[in-house]
Amino acid sequence: MLAYLVRRIVFGAAVLVGTSVITFAIAFVVPADPAVAMAGAKADPQTLASIRSEMGLDQPLYVQYARYFDRAIHGDLGRSYIRRESVTRLIADRFPATAVLAGAAMALSVMLGIAMGAIAAAYRGRAADNILLVISLALVSIPVFWLGTMLLIAVAATIRSFPLGGYSGATSLVLPTLTLALGSAGYYSRVLHTSLCDAFDQDYVRTARGKGLSRVRVMLKHAMANALLPLVTLAGLDLAGLLSGVVLTETVFNWPGIGRLAAEAIFNLDIPVIMGTVLFSALLIVVVNLLVDLLYAWLDPRIRLAETG
Rank of each mutant, 00 (worst) to 15 (best):
M1H: 05
Y4P: 03
Y4W: 14
A13H: 00
L16N: 05
V21C: 08
P31F: 09
A39W: 01
A43Y: 01
D44Y: 00
E54Q: 12
M55I: 06
P60Q: 08
R71C: 00
A72M: 15
A72K: 03
Y81L: 15
R84M: 09
V87S: 07
F95N: 01
M106L: 15
A107D: 05
S109C: 00
A121S: 12
Y123D: 08
R126M: 04
N130H: 14
I131C: 03
L132S: 04
I135E: 00
L139D: 02
V140R: 13
S141W: 05
I142Q: 04
F145C: 06
W146Y: 10
M150K: 05
L152R: 13
A156Q: 10
L164K: 01
Y167A: 12
G169R: 02
T171E: 12
S172I: 06
L175V: 10
T177P: 12
L182W: 01
L182G: 09
S184R: 04
D198C: 01
A199L: 05
A199E: 15
V205R: 05
R206N: 03
A208N: 06
G210S: 15
M224Y: 07
V232A: 14
T233R: 10
G236I: 02
L239N: 11
L239T: 13
L239K: 13
T249W: 00
V252S: 07
F253W: 03
L261N: 12
I274F: 08
T277M: 11
L279P: 08
L279S: 12
V286Y: 09
V288L: 08
L291G: 13
V292W: 05
W298V: 14
R302D: 03
R302H: 13
I303W: 00
I303G: 00
R304H: 08
L305F: 12
L305C: 05
A306C: 06
G309I: 09
